[in-house]
Amino acid sequence: MIPAMRQSFGLRRTWAYRYFVLSSIATELRLRVVGSRLGLVWLVVSPLLQVAMYALVLSTVMRSRLPGVDNRFAYAIYLLAGFLAWYPFTEIVTRCVTLFLDNANALKKIAFPRTVLPLIVLGSAAFNNCVMIAVTAAAFLLMGHVPSWQALWLPVLLLANLALAGGFGLCCGVLNVFIRDVGQLVQIGLQFGFWLTPIVYVIDIIPASYRWVIGLNPMFWVLDNYHRVLVYDQPPDFGKLAAVVALALVLLLLGRFMLRQSQAEMMDTL
């Protein structure tokens, strides 16, 4: 005799759904491609255009500010590395915030572990980011920038980034079911976050006395390491990497705890 409620939790049950997670990621891609001529090209068009725009507008201001990179496209390279980190983060957080609301119908009608939903988002974002990495690599080569062996740290940085985004998104997603304002707040937070993170500017342009504010931003820890390994040919700052991993784990555990605690109430609220 298994109590019915025990079934819906536990990582083991989620593991049993691994095939579903993979097939859902494939399904999502398929749905995005279906009926569109350019298909997967759209995955990279909008981020690339954004990079090009910032490069055009800000390159004259920023070029001289990138010491140690001897390339006339230095700013574009810096931008690409930054967006490579920022895009998956916003994609995951944005989707996770409304994850349970978007899937309310399925959650109410089908018994499946809810942990598979964020996993699908993470997997799908990871795939998108891999495409983006390939395109970025091609762009680097075109601009004559060959990153050093330090770039091999990228998968580790990406995993830490995904975990951080997933943990943060999960917590916000659970809260958003009960307090819908969270969704709005997170959107605004991401807008501010974009400018509070050195993506389109370098931290040196911030007056030294205010830099500590940026230093408190976990996304700065992520971005700085991306920049180090992809732009400056330096090893990652392990202090920052450890901090990101630790924060990600705390958020993931908190999110899981919140998800468990809210099981019954969430079903009533959805």
């Binding site: 298994i2 019915a4 749905l31 279906v34 009926g35 119908n105 009608k109 018994a111 019954a264």
Partner: peptide, 30 residues
């Protein structure tokens, strides 16, 4: 197993399949 009772107990043995709505999870484009 979709909702939990706030009081009481449900004991089941074996696999449960529920058809609460036909076509849940279907997507028209696929």
């Amino acid at each position: 197993g979709i909702t939990r009772p706030s009081a009481g107990r449900i004991a089941l043995s074996g696999r449960v399949a529920a058809i609460l709505e036909l076509g849940m999870g279907f997507s028209g484009e696929l």
